[in-house]
Amino acid sequence: MKFSLPIAAAVIALVPVTEAWRVYFYQLQNEEGPFITDGGPGNPGHRCFSNVDPLNQKISSMRYYSDNDQLNTRCCLTLYDSPGCENSRFSFCRNQFVNFNEVGFDNDVSSYSTDCYHPVLDA
């Protein structure tokens, strides 16, 4: 069976994009309690996630996955204690788990941003 270019492009557009990064924010220490999660394709550049509702100022631990070897992408994550990505406190550029009480940031996360790049191409 032969596909025409428009049909092949439509099929490719329907295939889900593999995520380059993923973050889990937990209300309690040690990845316990209610959580929110987000992820993205890792397109090069900066993106602000202006709030972390419904856990604004209630996050006690985090698990972050920064890389996707298949996409040759790495994303750094920056945490802020104010909405709209203001007042940065911590940045992580590799896979990370943290209990925020251990770094004096318990219940302080209000927003976050990602900075994504291609480590081999941009190095």
Rank of each mutant, 00 (worst) to 15 (best):
S4V: 11
L5T: 14
L5R: 13
P6I: 06
A8Y: 10
A8G: 09
A9Y: 10
A10V: 07
A13L: 13
L14I: 07
L14Q: 14
V15L: 13
V17S: 10
V17P: 00
E19I: 11
A20E: 03
R22M: 09
Y26G: 01
L28H: 12
E31L: 09
E31V: 04
E31D: 12
G33Y: 08
P34F: 14
I36Q: 05
T37Y: 05
D38Y: 12
N43L: 08
R47I: 12
C48W: 08
F49T: 06
F49C: 02
F49P: 00
V52F: 09
K58S: 08
M62G: 03
R63K: 15
Y64I: 04
Y64A: 02
Y65F: 15
D67E: 13
N68L: 02
L71T: 10
T73W: 00
C75D: 01
C75Q: 00
L77E: 03
D81R: 13
P83C: 00
G84D: 09
E86V: 14
R89P: 01
R89D: 00
R94A: 14
Q96A: 12
N101E: 12
E102Q: 14
V103K: 04
G104M: 06
F105T: 03
F105I: 05
N107W: 00
N107H: 10
N107P: 01
D108C: 05
V109L: 13
S110H: 07
S110Q: 15
S111N: 05
Y112Q: 05
Y112I: 07
T114A: 01
T114P: 01
D115I: 06
Y117E: 04
H118P: 00
P119E: 01
V120L: 15
L121F: 10
